[in-house]
Design a protein around this nucleic acid. Structure first.
Ligand SMILES: Nc1nc2c(ncn2[C@H]2C[C@H](O)[C@@H](COP(=O)(O)OP(=O)(O)OP(=O)(O)O)O2)c(=O)[nH]1
Ligand SMILES: [Mn+2]
Ligand SMILES: [Mn+2]
Length: 428
DNA sequence: TAACCGTGCCAC
DNA sequence: AAACGTGGCACGGTTA
């Protein structure tokens, strides 16, 4: 570690972070298991109905959770067209939603029954995922001694320097669909207390603007613009102030996919664009942000020549395989990982600084408020209601000043009785 | 029965 | 041929 020049990182970040994480794990978070039991029953009803109708349309029963059986039913028994669909490594035609959507997109080739089958599969997949991974699983993990849900934060879980969370993973609680979001209602504060969630705005885009010194991006952030919303406005042809939550969400994926090396084909499969429109989009993107392309090329050169890339705090990720002869696609995959690592890793560095400082400040200033969760660029705390305003401004101050970027860090702070119903706390 | 792999999908 | 990155978990199906 010393030879690698990472001793300082170890002493000043990872080591002091350890007791912070320990406190968070021991604190745990309160879960409304009654609410989840209710939700489970409702999901069970819908799943039953879904399954029954599907078996009627298909003509027999089978295990809907088996991708092998489902593939057989769709592509051998029911005669769905298979052109353009991916095969899995075991030789079956993939039944991933993304593949089945290709079928839906060519719906003129499908009978009404076939279309209904696809819709029912989509519904069944979503309900089954939510029930098995969250609604039924989380309550079984509540600790009987504390009555709370305790995750493990793994400090060495990710190669970029991010944390990971397991048993249960509390970094992937649903938010993107209305139904999935409902699960967040089960994460609650005790009576008289509130949850607070503070999330960095567009964080990796700001890190990118800083490290690439891209003037157009830096300007945009200095003026307080929302790049995800701007991209959404362009993608969907709507004014920026009419961009919906889900439109902005897709634009977010597009923005990060673009800077981390997506192909025109990959971009087209995630949008309504065809591959040539997608190529145009990419060309325009890098024309608008020319330093981003330069930064990418420079990072790839570094990974190949030095054998590693590094974050703002000097965290290194090594790429020894790049020194060897490799199939073209494997080399490209490693190069994309090398582009991503300094940015994702720097964002992780920044929030780790914030966590250490915030932990200290909360203790020093005598707050009862405590950190419970970290979700990569978000901190979730609980606090007595009367601490609301003081803690909100402290959290914002500590997070925004954790590290100086030329694109200023901005934090959105929200407060509420649970992780779903939250209202924004302004910075004034 | 437990461990493992492949598939698929949730989040950031 | 394969075509954003980083994770963890449930399930089916196979193996030991
Ligand atoms: N490569 C990649 N990184 C992602 C993706 N989604 C999220 N991230 C990374 C980059 C984000 O800046 C970071 C935090 O995720 P958030 O959902 O908080 O998004 P972000 O902060 O960019 O926007 P926000 O203003 O919080 O909505 O995680 C993705 O689809 N691909
Ligand atoms: Mn964010
Ligand atoms: Mn976030």
């Amino acid at each position: 570690m010393q030879e690698a020049g990472m001793w300082k990182l170890y002493e000043e970040i990872e080591l002091p972070l350890l007791p912070v994480l320990a406190d968070m794990e021991m604190a745990g978070i309160l879960l409304d298991t009654q609410f989840l039991a209710q939700m489970s029953a409702e999901l069970g009803q819908r799943l039953q109905a879904c399954q029954k109708r599907l078996f009627t349309l298909v003509g027999h029963e089978f295990n809907l959770r088996s991708t092998q059986q489902l593939s057989q039913v769709l592509f051998q028994e029911m005669g769905f067209p298979t052109t353009g669909l991916r095969k899995t490594q075991s030789g079956f035609i993939s039944t991933a939603v993304g593949e089945l959507e290709k079928l839906m997109a060519a719906s003129q080739n499908l009978s009404a029954d076939q279309q209904e089958v696809l819709e029912l599969i989509f519904e069944h997949r979503q309900l089954e995922k939510l029930r098995s991974t969250y609604v039924d699983a989380l309550p079984t993990l509540v600790n009987p001694a504390t009555g709370r849900l305790h995750t493990s934060f793994n400090q060495t879980g990710a190669s970029t320097g991010r944390l990971s969370s397991s048993n249960p993973n509390l970094q992937n609680i649903p938010i993107r669909t209305e139904l999935g979001r409902e699960i967040r209602r089960a994460f609650i504060a005790p009576e008289g207390w509130l949850l607070l969630a503070a999330d960095y705005s567009q964080v990796e885009l700001r890190v990118l603007a800083h490290v690439a010194q891209e003037p157009a991006l830096l300007d945009a952030f200095r003026q307080g613009q929302d790049i995800h919303a701007a991209t959404a406005s362009k993608l969907f042809g709507v004014p920026i102030d009419q961009v919906t939550r889900s439109q902005r969400g897709l634009a977010k994926t597009i923005n990060f996919a673009t800077i981390y090396g997506v192909s025109a084909y990959g971009l087209s499969s995630r949008t309504e664009m065809d591959p040539s429109q997608a190529q145009q989009f990419l060309d325009q993107y890098f024309e608008t942000y020319p330093r981003v392309r330069q930064y990418i090329e420079e990072t790839i050169r570094q990974a190949n020549e030095q054998g590693y890339v590094e974050t703002l705090l000097g965290r290194k990720r090594y790429f020894p395989e790049l020194k060897r002869r490799l199939p073209h696609n494997q080399r490209q995959a490693l190069e994309r990982a090398a582009i991503n690592a300094p940015i994702q890793g720097s964002a992780a560095d920044i929030i780790k600084i914030a966590m250490i400082r915030l932990h200290k400040r909360l203790a020093e200033e005598g707050f009862q408020a405590r950190m419970l969760l970290q979700v990569h660029d978000e901190l979730v705390l609980e606090m007595p209601a009367h601490e609301r305003d003081a803690v909100a401004s402290l959290v914002r101050e500590v997070m925004e000043n954790a590290y100086h970027l030329d694109a200023p860090l901005k934090v959105d702070v929200e407060v509420g009785p649970n992780w779903l119903d939250m209202e924004e706390v302004g910075s004034q």
